[in-house]
Design a protein around this nucleic acid. Structure first.
Length: 200
DNA sequence: TCGTCGATCTACT
DNA sequence: GTAGATCGACGAG
């Protein structure tokens, strides 16, 4: 059921980002399985993408994970508060990554509510990259971890979305990236309530 | 070494 | 609508 390691070895991050919509993402943290299917992603295309941390072949302790071979996680801290969960793709030395911005929760609802300190289920429990990571219990401990592991993995359960049901639009929060901010590297399922805000 | 700003979210006004 | 939280990377000095 898990997507094979080779799935992540393709060099076409944008295609994988689109394909990941409808795939199921699960984590097993503190002995509890939580997860759901992916409703929103963003592609970050390696060293030629101004919006990527790895732009210009920039290697730091934080970004080195992205330079490893595809099929692992890249988790980093943003604004000093939020953990962001990414999937590294392509071959070693090609720092391509996919940010998971939203999922529709299906497993471990109770645990996710607790982690988010919420009483009732609302769409914003897992809409937005910071929220997804928190609900799934993802932290920087889960960095550079294989997606073949039993801590975090992705499954194909046969759910697919037609092209008409998918929107491809510019990415969020990357105005600083100049022309690259205009690239349609953000994909989401149209009309799904579990999609982050700048959706309209 | 310091100051600025970021792939954000929440809680107020 | 907008301030605040607050870490890592970067560029200026």
């Amino acid at each position: 059921m898990k997507l094979p390691d080779t799935y992540y070895h393709s060099d076409d991050v944008v295609a994988i980002s689109r394909d990941l919509l409808g795939k199921y993402l699960f984590t097993c943290v503190d002995g509890v399985i939580t997860g759901g299917y992916i409703t929103e992603t963003e592609a970050y295309k390696g060293i030629v993408d101004r919006a990527s941390h790895a732009f210009g072949n920039r290697k730091t302790p934080r970004t080195q994970t992205m330079f490893l071979q595809g099929g692992i996680t890249y988790v980093y801290l943003c604004y000093g508060i939020h953990e962001m969960f990414n999937i590294v793709t392509s071959a070693e030395g090609q720092p391509h990554a996919i940010l998971i911005r939203a999922i529709e929760p299906t497993e471990g609802l109770e645990t996710m509510l607790q982690r988010r300190k919420m009483e009732k289920l609302k769409p914003n429990i897992t809409s937005g990259p910071g929220s997804v990571a928190k609900a799934l219990g993802i932290s920087r401990i889960i960095n550079a971890v294989s997606l073949q592991s039993d801590t975090i993995w992705i499954e194909d359960q046969g759910l697919n979305f037609a092209d008409e049901a998918v929107a491809a639009v510019p990415r969020v929060g990357v105005d600083y990236a100049g022309d690259d901010a205009l690239l349609p590297y953000r994909f989401y399922v149209k009309g799904n309530p579990y999609v982050s805000k700048p959706n309209k």
